[in-house]
Measured scan of single mutants.
Amino acid sequence: MEVRTIKVFTTVDNINLHTQVVDMSMTYGQQFGPTYLDGADVTKIKPHNSHEGKTFYVLPNDDTLRVEAFEYYHTTDPSFLGRYMSALNHTKKWKYPQVNGLTSIKWADNNCYLATALLTLQQIELKFNPPALQDAYYRARAGEAANFCALILAYCNKTVGELGDVRETMSYLFQHANLDSCKRVLNVVCKTCGQQQTTLKGVEAVMYMGTLSYEQFKKGVQIPCTCGKQATKYLVQQESPFVMMSAPPAQYELKHGTFTCASEYTGNYQCGHYKHITSKETLYCIDGALLTKSSEYKGPITDVFYKENSYTTTIK
């Protein structure tokens, strides 16, 4: 009895394709271990004539594949690729409408935090270190965002349907971005203890939790000093293409032309909904596939993004 075979390709990165001759009487799992086709788990399936010449994702289970996976995804987590594939199996079914010149995501599976993050990423200057993220990001900007969303979920250790947080998501993504040249110098002034300067680099240099107003941050924000008295913390120097200011959701007025974009969060910790506000020729609110415009805006804002380049204080 002759062994019926077909020729397929296996890959971990969709760049390096490895030619395989597979036995049609055995499952993919018996031949390769966990195997995925377009995100779908085909591990328990036997090869079919229609699979001839198709590319299958496999887990990096030998040295060659491990090197290829690390170079593309910059992670050695053995569960990463499987999590990416199972997320992709959902995100490829989502709709990605162009809204006001940006790629958004039609609401499904509690994905409003991903839509808000995706919209924000198209408006701030950011370059990702893992080629996987950078490639998928370019495709997302062009309207094909399924891979990018699935990668975000995998890097953030999230599953489809789980509630997510924009600030946490951005923080994970910033860790995989090139923020080497970003720098922030802060000064804390206390009447009792004097003053202390701190220099922050990388992710810490672009994120701040405690106030939404970048102007206020430049002037000074009140913080408790270690001595128990009130101290003032203010920005001395900022070198970065953008800054992200966050605070627990509270009524906040966004003035046209003073910011790049913002995240609105309605609801409580267990259950809520994100919308995205962007400042173009007027203010726009993007909620999944829905767009509304207004000249002014007041609502429960939790993150505001500002364009920056270089700032030095005039406070002496």
Rank of each mutant, 00 (worst) to 15 (best):
Y28K: 09
D77W: 05
Q237C: 13
R184M: 04
T43D: 09
Q98M: 15
G29Y: 08
P300W: 14
L114E: 01
R83Y: 06
Q98P: 08
E296Q: 12
L254R: 01
R83D: 05
Y36A: 04
N16K: 02
T226W: 06
H176A: 05
T211F: 03
G272V: 00
K233L: 14
L59C: 13
H18S: 06
I45H: 14
M24V: 13
A87V: 02
E215G: 06
L153W: 05
T260L: 15
F259N: 02
I301E: 02
C227D: 01
H176G: 03
A150S: 02
N100L: 12
T198F: 15
T211G: 08
L163N: 06
K54F: 13
N100Y: 09
D180W: 08
P131V: 03
E281I: 00
P60D: 12
A205N: 01
I277F: 04
I45S: 13
G29N: 13
V99F: 14
F56Q: 02
G39N: 07
Q230C: 03
Y265N: 01
L291S: 14
E239N: 08
K298Y: 15
K293D: 01
Q197C: 05
R184N: 02
A250L: 06
V22Y: 03
T258W: 01
S104W: 02
I301A: 00
A69S: 07
D180P: 02
K95I: 14
L291I: 12
D38P: 07
S310D: 14
C156K: 05
Q31D: 09
L102Q: 09
Y96N: 06
L254C: 04
P130K: 01
Y284Q: 09
Y73T: 02
D180G: 09
F148C: 06
I315S: 15
E296D: 15
P78Q: 12
V22C: 13
L173T: 05
K307C: 12
G39D: 09
N49H: 13
V42M: 12
K54Y: 14
V12P: 07
S86R: 13
V99C: 09
G220R: 02
A250N: 09
D38A: 09
G299Y: 02
Q123K: 07
Q196G: 06
S171N: 14
K307N: 09
P249R: 08
T76E: 11
T292H: 12
V304N: 00
D287L: 01
Q195W: 10
A146N: 03
Y208L: 03
A205G: 02
D23C: 11
C193L: 02
